[in-house]
Amino acid sequence: MLIDPRTFANRRETALIQSDEESPAIAQEFIVANRLGIHARVAAQIVKVACRFDSEISIAKSEVAANAKSILDVLSLLCPYGTKVFVTARGPDAAQALHALAALFQTKFGEP
């Protein structure tokens, strides 16, 4: 299966969002708690929230990370119920972004 490395390799790059002097990266761990996991509509919610912020935001699962502003990227992470994910944000509004995403995860995306 040939996947152009330029398209999706950036997942690895986003995974490694690093702190630098100007803008430190902050991160938080969540567990996907809704029964259906991150399916299309949930991913849409995440992306919608992420896109409101200027910061770079990634969602990582074990080795791989996804750009939280790309629905295809988020969906390709495959996060069923119980998956442990690591959300990282870096940029001017990183704290707010993380806060908003935390709210989504904690309310189980409004699902059972």
Partner: peptide, 10 residues
């Protein structure tokens, strides 16, 4: 979801 896919970076 389709609308978001349209604007997806990939």
């Amino acid at each position: 979801v389709q609308q978001m896919i349209l604007r997806d970076p990939s």
